[in-house]
């Protein structure tokens, strides 16, 4: 590959060709992002397919007027509802999606300081042939500790998030909302 007097470059290449072991937990982090991406793509594909389908639409003028009135009513109602929520402080929450890849799990729950670590409060739902579990939770701004409870017994930290100190002997993770 190199000239005879290029022993030093041969040694460099030998060193650089040695295998490197990457962190195996990287796989789980990738799959969490893939799962999120997959669900977004599914949703977009379905909408795109629906929009591309040709349709024949027939409507009576009276029905059109009634629909317009109903839409105006809904818009007015939503406006009122939003301002009420804002007054109650819910506007400060952010919806956070939690995802875990657990192909062999029968049940998975999200537990954390936001639901008093109660396994019954936030069950996760299987998607993609049951290999990926997901749930969305509205959380106020700040740092929250959480973990996954698999099959009611196995306590797992989120491989895709920073770890929290194991104060109680069980692994948990940290999610920061806002700020």
């Amino acid at each position: 590959m190199f000239d005879r007097d290029d022993d030093v470059l041969e040694r460099v290449v030998d060193r650089l060709r040695e295998p490197i072991e990457m962190d195996p937990t990287l796989d789980a982090r990738v799959m969490v992002r893939v799962a999120r991406s997959s669900r977004r793509l599914d949703w977009l594909t379905r909408w795109w397919d629906w929009l591309r389908q040709p349709r024949e639409v027939s409507i009576r003028p009276l029905t059109a007027l009634a629909a317009a009135a109903a839409l105006a009513g809904v818009a007015l109602w939503l406006g009122t509802k939003t301002s009420t929520q804002g007054a109650a402080g819910l506007a400060d929450t952010t919806v956070v999606e939690f995802v875990l890849v657990a192909p062999h799990a029968a049940t998975v729950s999200l537990v954390g300081d936001f639901n008093d670590w109660d396994a019954a409060t936030t069950p996760m739902h299987p998607v993609k042939n049951g290999s990926i579990w997901s749930v969305t939770v509205p959380l106020p701004a700040g740092r929250h500790r959480y973990a996954f409870l698999v099959d009611g017994a196995r306590w797992l930290a989120d491989p895709a998030a920073p770890r929290a100190p194991d104060d109680f002997g069980a692994p948990s993770s940290v999610v920061t909302v806002g700020g």
């Binding site: 990738v30 799959m31 997959s38 890849v101 192909p103 993609k128 042939n129 990926i132």
Partner: peptide, 9 residues
Amino acid sequence: DTAAFAVLV
């Protein structure tokens, strides 16, 4: 089969 992608990773 999204989970199969883990094998490639």
